Computed example of a mutant assay.
Amino acid sequence: MSYEQLLERARALTTGPRRILGLVGAPGSGKSTLAARLAADLGPELAVVVGMDGYHYADVVLEALGRRERKGAPDTFDVGGYVSLLRRLRSGEESVVHAPQFRREIEEPVGSALPVPREVPLVITEGNYLLLREGPWAALEGLLDECWYLEPADDVRQARLIARHEAFGKDPAAARAWALGTDEDNARVIAASRHRADLVVHPD
Rank of each mutant, 00 (worst) to 15 (best):
L132C: 14
E151H: 07
R133Y: 09
R133F: 07
P152L: 11
L140S: 15
R133P: 06
Q158T: 15
W148S: 00
A187M: 03
K170Y: 12
D154K: 13
L144E: 13
A175N: 03
E146C: 07
E141S: 05
A175R: 03
D155P: 02
E166V: 08
R196V: 02
W148Y: 00
G135L: 13
E134K: 15
R188V: 10
D154T: 15
A187F: 00
V189W: 04
P152K: 15
E184T: 04
A153S: 12
C147T: 14
I190W: 09
Y149E: 01
N186P: 01
L161R: 09
F168H: 05
D171W: 05
F168Q: 01
N186R: 10
W178L: 15
L131D: 06
P136I: 12
A174F: 03
E151A: 03
L130F: 04
I162D: 00
V189F: 02
R176F: 09
A167W: 05
E166S: 00
R160I: 12
V156A: 05
N186Q: 08
L143S: 08
T182N: 15
G135P: 02
Y149C: 11
A138F: 10
E134R: 11
E166I: 06
W137C: 02
N186V: 09
H195R: 13
D154N: 09
Y149M: 10
D183V: 02
P172A: 03
W178S: 10
R160E: 07
N186D: 10
A173E: 14
L143D: 12
L140E: 11
R157N: 08
A163K: 07
Y149R: 04
A191N: 04
L130C: 01
A167T: 02
L180I: 05
A139F: 09
W148F: 00
T182E: 10
L130R: 01
G169M: 02
L161Q: 12
G142L: 11
I190R: 03
G142M: 09
Y149K: 03
D171G: 14
K170V: 12
A175M: 06
R160N: 05
A163I: 06
R194K: 14
A191T: 12
A177T: 08
A175D: 08
A177K: 07
R133C: 07
R188A: 14
R196E: 04
L180V: 06
R196N: 04
V189I: 12
A153V: 12
S193F: 02
G135T: 06
L130P: 00
W137Y: 13
D155Q: 10
T182D: 12
R160P: 10
H195Q: 12
R188T: 11
A163W: 07
G142E: 08
A192T: 05
F168Y: 14
R160A: 05
D155Y: 09
A191E: 11
A139Q: 11
L131A: 02
I190Q: 04
G142W: 08
Y149N: 06
I162G: 00
R194N: 04
R196F: 15
D171A: 06
A167I: 01
A175L: 03
E134M: 09
G135C: 08
V189D: 06
A179W: 10
W178P: 01
D155V: 14
D185V: 14
A187W: 03
D183F: 04
W137S: 05
A177W: 03
A138V: 14
A159Y: 07
A153R: 14
D185I: 15
